[in-house]
Simulated scan of single mutants.
Amino acid sequence: MGCKINPSAPSVLCKFRPTIPELRTKTVFFSSSSSSSSSSFSHKLQKIRYSSTNLEVPSTEAKSYTVSFRTARDCRLGISRYPDFAYNAEGGKGTGSGAEVADNLADNELLVSFDLETLYIPPLTSSTTKFLGLPLPPFLNIDIVPLVFQGRINKESGKVDLEFKAKFFFSAGSFYKAPPLLVKTVLTSEESKGTIKSGRGKRLNEEGKCKLVGAATVDPVDDFLMNSFLGLPTECLAELNSVINISESS
């Protein structure tokens, strides 16, 4: 586009360049005896796929948590070598669940997964986005449809690493709709660095505020106009000021 706690289309492949090490995929199952209405823990099991090194299944005695996510003003989105878009993401929100990592309880590290049905990221429109100090043209619209939002939050250090995957739908009125761009990255409170785009986030503070950044590579789509206009393949960067609140489930 700071916080406590900026899906695969056949025509697009995105490779992310987070600064965390190369990760391997493991499957983790969460379970809880809590009667909370939290979407992840009120059901018998939730299956979470998350890329991690030495990821362990949380103990059945581990506490469960409710996690809320909100996006704020003064975010930025950049693509290719164009100047960044100034983006007001206020109003974005989502809820999810967290559980302590079995081998890391002393460090207060949680595995978290957000419910996609509750996750909303405001579109880029003339009312939310400016380019070179001017609002986007009224007919231009970029919708963001999240496909994955999950990862790790360290309550002690404030470090956040959240895998984020989304489709970006570009349209110009009713006369032009481009194939969706698939963006896949890790939104991190640390540094995210690509070849031409990079940014540094801020860890969660006591108020739950943080800045999450993520650089990603965007491959061409089956649309000559979009490929030419954006210079695909290229890189994009998101900087999201956010608020993440974590509370123990009852």
Rank of each mutant, 00 (worst) to 15 (best):
L110Y: 04
S31A: 14
G194K: 02
G158M: 05
L187R: 12
S126V: 06
L23E: 08
V186N: 08
R70L: 06
P7F: 12
P233A: 15
S127K: 13
G208P: 01
L132K: 13
M1A: 15
K130C: 05
F30M: 09
S113G: 12
T217R: 10
L13P: 06
D143L: 14
L116T: 12
R49H: 03
F114M: 03
G151E: 09
L23T: 10
L132T: 13
P137F: 10
V12Y: 01
Y120K: 15
L132C: 12
F30A: 10
L237Q: 15
A178V: 13
S40I: 07
G231N: 04
C3H: 06
R17T: 08
R152C: 01
L134G: 07
S36Q: 12
A172L: 13
V186Q: 01
T66W: 01
K197S: 11
K26H: 11
C236D: 01
L105P: 04
R76E: 12
T125H: 10
T185G: 05
L147T: 05
L237D: 14
I144Y: 01
P58S: 15
T95R: 13
T217A: 15
I153W: 07
K47L: 10
Q150A: 15
L181W: 02
P18F: 06
K211R: 11
L182M: 05
G151R: 11
L232S: 15
E117R: 04
L119N: 09
L204I: 13
R17G: 07
I20H: 08
V186P: 00
D222I: 10
D222F: 13
K26M: 12
M226Q: 04
D219E: 01
S127A: 15
S127F: 03
C236N: 02
R152D: 02
S126E: 09
S38M: 04
T19E: 06
V101W: 08
S34C: 15
I244R: 03
G158Q: 08
G133C: 00
K202T: 14
S33K: 14
F169P: 04
S32T: 01
D143S: 15
S249T: 05
T19R: 12
S11F: 00
T128L: 10
G98P: 00
S126M: 07
F114E: 00
K197P: 00
G2N: 03
S33A: 14
S37Y: 03
P7H: 08
S127D: 07
I153R: 09
M226P: 00
L182Y: 02
S228K: 05
P138Q: 05
D223N: 11
D103Y: 07
V213W: 06
F229N: 14
S126R: 14
K155R: 02
V243F: 12
Y176K: 04
I121W: 00
L55M: 11
V218W: 00
D107P: 08
